[in-house]
Design a protein around this nucleic acid. Structure first.
Length: 415
DNA sequence: TCTGTATGGGGAA
DNA sequence: TCCCCCTACAGAT
């Protein structure tokens, strides 16, 4: 569940689990990963982590070497930073060598016998890492740990065209909201009763660059130009001492304060987090797709900038489906999926890892399957639709085959 | 067996 | 703006 809080909890996990652990040798990458090799090799090194928004930095620090003594050829004598982004499914886990998690794509080996392994695990492989990296320059200050500069960065750039967009979409722009993701934007807007598809600038332009809660000044809210904003007017009174930028800071910190329970793979327990959610994927809430195709959960009005003429066939299809059903039905479906997703997290991940060869075989098989599947007659579609549905079918079927061959591999290896 | 969905973001046009 | 990267699962067919 990687948004800002989870990335931070991941860095805490690394610092806690790797405290006192000495790592050794090379950093190993899985066969299938397309991320870069990590050219680091040290007889003895330690690992520490920090986070900033939706990035984690691991620092590998060689130890024990006398600075005057020559380091072996090919061995690092300088620390290396590796910047990680987690995509949709990344996390770290420290395990024994024979319990490597499935989808462990980057591995750091400890010096002990038997050794332990710190893995970057990422089922969907949307995550990336950058050896010798720095915090991505285009990303803004961290919403949790650089609050003042985060706030200033937003309010001093309101003339940027980025703020022409709906507030819910701007909140996913990491140039300004580094650390906010899909569940956080829903929770924050819900608490302020701000319709998600109101122009971002309108929501933000009345805010003071100084955090009024900290300076104890009276809060001045300026939502008067938002039409149909009865709810916002109420909020003006109710939420007198906060605003969207402050909540973008405090709400993620609430998740951090829930603790590492949701992250700690040994005690996978998402019930606390699930109970914490007030809006995202919650019964009775509405949801629509934003202009980027991401689901926005909210209550009440959607706001004037809600997508209407959706260009993508996928989105059109969704809209048609939504026209055919009332929100209640849709909620049931969405809620069911979401619950199942959370439930899935509760199931301990398989600890068997495919050997590189088996991974390769699975991919070869997958490629063969792709070719076969594309020979199937195509549906009658608009050209655009045709392209996408074919792609979907191809993806889906190839994945089935890949998954099947993985299952087979596991069966074989368990025999 | 097929379809839709998932806490993200890079890159081409 | 749109497509794509990829796996895993639930629900529909």
């Amino acid at each position: 569940m990687p948004e800002g809080p989870e990335l931070h909890l991941a860095s805490c996990y690394v610092n806690k689990m790797c405290d006192g652990v000495v790592f050794t040798g090379a950093v190993r990458k899985s066969e299938v990963s397309k991320s870069p090799d990590v050219p680091f090799n040290s007889e003895a090194y330690r690992i520490t982590a920090t986070s900033r928004g939706k990035e984690v930095k691991l620092t590998l620090t060689p130890i024990g070497g006398d600075s005057k003594r020559r380091v072996k050829a090919g061995q690092a004598d300088q620390p290396m930073d590796i910047i990680f982004r987690f995509g949709m499914s990344g996390f770290f886990r420290l395990t024994s060598e024979d319990e490597l998690p499935k989808h462990s794509h980057l591995r750091f080996y400890s010096k002990e016998k038997p050794c332990r392994v710190l893995s970057f695990v990422d089922a969907r492989r949307f995550g990336t890492w950058h050896p010798n990296g720095t915090w991505q320059p285009d990303r803004g200050p961290c919403i949790m740990f650089e609050y003042k500069s985060f706030r200033e960065n937003v309010l001093s750039h309101l003339s940027d065209r980025a703020f022409d967009r709906p507030i819910c979409e701007v909140m996913l722009n990491q140039k300004y909201f580094n650390g906010i993701g899909n569940y956080l934007r829903a929770e924050i807007l819900y608490r302020l009763n701000i319709p998600p598809f109101v122009c971002a600038r309108t929501v933000l332009e009345g805010l003071e660059s100084e955090d009024l809660c900290e300076s104890e000044k009276p809060v001045k809210k300026e939502f008067s130009d938002v039409k149909g904003s009865d709810r916002i007017t109420k909020v003006k009174v109710k939420e007198e001492k906060t605003d969207l930028l402050r909540l973008s800071h405090t709400v993620p910190l609430e998740v951090v304060s829930l603790g590492g329970k949701g992250y700690d793979p040994e005690k996978a327990d998402y019930s606390g987090f699930q109970a914490w959610l007030q809006c995202y994927s919650v019964d009775g809430m509405k949801s629509v797709r934003d202009h980027n195709g991401r689901t926005m959960w909210f209550q009440g009005d959607s706001g004037p900038m809600v997508p209407k003429d959706l260009k993508s066939p996928k989105a059109k299809k969704r809209v048609k489906k939504e026209d055919d059903h009332d929100y209640t039905d849709k909620k049931k479906v969405s809620r069911g999926r979401s619950k199942s997703t959370l439930k899935r997290k509760l199931i301990k991940e398989e600890t068997v890892i495919k050997t590189p060869k088996k991974e390769k075989d699975a991919r070869l098989k997958e490629a063969g399957s792709k070719r076969r599947k594309t020979e199937k007659p195509q549906e009658i579609n608009t050209p655009h639709r045709e392209k996408r549905s074919t792609a979907r079918r191809r993806k889906s079927s190839s994945n089935d085959t890949a998954a099947g061959s993985q299952r087979q591999s596991r069966r074989m290896s368990s025999k």
